Computed example of a mutant assay.
Amino acid sequence: MKGTRTAIIYGVLVALALGLGLAVNQSLPPPLVPSVDNPGPMGVRALYLYLEESGARVSALREALEGSGLPDSLRTVVVTAPSGRPVTEEEAGALRSWVSRGGTLVYLVSREAKARQPQLDSWLGISDGPMLAPDSEGLPPREKDFTGTTVRVWVPVGPLRNVERLRVSLDRGITVGRPEAVPLAGAKGAAVVWRVPEGRGEVYVLAGTDLAENRRLELLDNLRFWDALAARGPLAFDEYHHGVPPKPEPPSARGLWVFVAQGLLVGLIYAVSRGTRFGPPRPLVVEKHRSALEYVRSLGWLARRSKVERELVPELARQLRRHMHERLGIPLTLPEDEAARLLEHSCGLPAADYLAAREDLVRTMEQREIRPSDYTRLARQYARFENLITGR
């Protein structure tokens, strides 16, 4: 009898929970709009936050691209395959005039025919190109991207100056019909990035939103393209044309029904908690944990016993060169004196300090026994260099 009552109570609770979930309708499908507010795989939220955390002046345009929607202080405007609202003829004219005055427009063309923007496509003469061939060049051994392919930069100009390979979707390229347009990147005759000069400015036309999507942002050199654009000055993403009409408010009867259901659920929980218990209360078990100081002392003792392995010392230099390559674009194969000169030019670290630390590391490696104090001194020097390179 007691088991039957328990089963009935749990059944009522599950039914109420399911009813509330259906009424509120919180389980929405993942968004597919390439918006800065979309944290899903096909959104550009990660790119927006990355640029913001990197110190770039980035913003979102939530007004029409005409009148006050395009301030002269902007340097770059990114239009990411808008599909919620069409770009009007007046907006296309305002964009063209703004680019002619020295602005940079990055237009990510949608690969879906229904989501195309006729005004922008006719201005730039955009049409579909040939299919890209599958290619996994440059991907790490364990990185899997079955729906993507690798394209190479043909003409390293503008934001593609220090870019070699890009990771994009395995789909069609694009063709720009303007006679002055130049294809900058692609694979085997299929172009995915074009440059179109317009007055004192320029337009970069990209096939799809692949370079900005959250799922491929960190692959190959995709981030370098956006870093170069952000370095030019204030950058803004067009969010106005992703907008959709607001959903109608739910009727008041639904809200009243949800309120009544919540009241019944709270009353049922109160009745169960104040009723007969399922068993005698158990004594509270007091758990005693070790203090944090004990863990610190144990780690210190372990570090003293293990001493310093010789392989840790050259790893400091290798890790710093990797940071210099990833953050500043300094090649790993460059000699130390050239790398020191470029490091001083990029972040203000004197080349003499870098070379002195390198000589100290070499002298330490030549010692018969490396003491913990020697490794601590080197680690402190290289940590300071890393903080300067990463901006911390």
Rank of each mutant, 00 (worst) to 15 (best):
V258W: 01
D145Q: 08
L219M: 05
R57S: 14
R392M: 13
G391Y: 08
T147A: 12
P246F: 06
R318Y: 10
L211Q: 00
R96H: 09
P250W: 03
Y382G: 06
G173K: 01
V24I: 08
R216K: 07
G173N: 02
A303M: 14
R172A: 08
R297Q: 13
L355G: 06
L32V: 10
R377W: 12
A190R: 01
V193E: 01
R57G: 07
T376E: 15
M1W: 11
S97L: 10
R310W: 07
G300A: 13
L184E: 00
I269M: 12
T175G: 14
W154P: 04
G186V: 04
S122Q: 11
P248D: 11
R57N: 11
P39W: 02
R282S: 11
S346P: 11
F225V: 01
N387L: 12
S27A: 08
V14D: 07
S273T: 12
G263V: 14
T175I: 15
V58H: 02
G11Y: 01
E63L: 13
V78C: 00
R111P: 09
L229T: 01
V77T: 05
T333Q: 06
Q119C: 11
D227Q: 11
V244K: 07
V153D: 00
V203E: 00
S127V: 06
L343C: 06
S127R: 07
S122D: 10
K188I: 15
A113W: 12
R358Q: 11
V203F: 03
L22F: 09
R327L: 12
L105T: 01
P130Y: 02
L316S: 02
K247C: 07
L28V: 10
V272Y: 14
S35G: 01
G84N: 00
E326R: 03
P245N: 13
L312R: 13
E239R: 04
A181P: 06
V272T: 14
W194Q: 02
R165Y: 04
K288H: 11
T276H: 14
A339F: 07
V182D: 03
R392E: 15
P29Q: 09
S122E: 11
I370T: 03
K144L: 12
E311A: 14
A352C: 06
P159L: 05
